[in-house]
Amino acid sequence: MRLLYTQIGRERGWRTFKRPGVDAFLEHLAKFYEVVVYSDQLSMYVDPVMERLDTKGCVRHRLSRVATKYVNGKHYRDLSKLNRDPARVIYISGHALESCLQPENCLPIKPWKLEAEDTQLIDLIPLLEYVATARVSDIRPVLASFEGRDIAAEFLERSRRVFEQKQQHASGRIWRR
């Protein structure tokens, strides 16, 4: 996912901006997940930026360009390089489907280009927390069920429907007694 946006200008040189909610997102999800940043940039660029971004040590590992697969002039994230069970890996990115060799593990979000009102990261927290606490055995069918939809909004709608069904079922039991 794009956690940062970097700009270069004549007057100020390189400037890096954090995506809204990135600190809270990383800090909260680090309680449930092994967070890994996977970039197609060289580690000499990734490491100093990550030192400034992740001051609380929420990101356990960093993968850079050497861990990508170069195909037809483009670097792709190859999640097999994580050496983790693919049923338990989620790759979140604004360009997930175009940058990853395992699309079934991708959770695409809207790319960020400095919009101050962006809430994509914070909006994903309920879904990601649910997946972690429900101990989903294979994340890939869950991700596939959201294909083509606004994932955060769809998850909230599904949660609302489940809550209403439980309420109706519970109120039905009271009347049967």
Rank of each mutant, 00 (worst) to 15 (best):
L4S: 08
G9T: 05
R10Y: 08
E11I: 02
W14C: 06
R15S: 14
R15Q: 14
T16A: 09
F17K: 02
R19Y: 06
P20T: 11
V22N: 00
L29Y: 07
A30E: 07
V36I: 11
S39K: 05
S39T: 03
D40C: 09
D40P: 15
M44Y: 10
Y45D: 11
V46Y: 05
P48H: 09
V49I: 11
M50R: 02
R52T: 13
D54W: 08
T55I: 13
T55R: 10
K56M: 12
C58Q: 04
C58M: 02
S64W: 14
R65E: 15
R65K: 10
V66L: 09
A67W: 08
A67P: 00
T68M: 06
K69F: 04
K69T: 15
K69H: 13
Y70N: 05
V71M: 07
K74Q: 12
R77P: 00
R77G: 00
R77F: 14
S80D: 13
S80M: 08
L82D: 05
D85G: 02
P86R: 00
A87H: 15
R88M: 12
R88C: 06
Y91T: 00
I92Q: 03
G94F: 10
G94L: 07
L97V: 03
S99A: 09
C100N: 10
L101K: 01
P108M: 01
P111I: 14
W112H: 06
W112K: 01
K113Y: 15
E117V: 11
E117I: 11
E117L: 04
T119I: 12
T119N: 08
Q120E: 13
Q120N: 09
I122E: 05
D123N: 11
L124N: 01
P126Y: 10
L128Y: 11
L128K: 02
E129V: 08
E129S: 06
E129A: 04
Y130M: 07
A132R: 08
A132L: 05
T133W: 07
R135W: 06
R135G: 13
I139A: 12
I139N: 06
R140Y: 10
P141W: 05
P141Y: 04
V142T: 12
V142W: 09
V142G: 00
L143A: 05
A144W: 02
A144I: 01
S145N: 08
S145R: 06
F146G: 04
E147V: 09
D150S: 05
A153G: 04
F155W: 14
L156T: 12
L156D: 07
E157R: 10
F163N: 06
E164C: 07
Q165Y: 13
K166Q: 15
K166D: 15
Q167G: 02
Q168R: 13
H169W: 13
A170P: 01
S171V: 03
I174P: 00
I174N: 02
R177T: 14
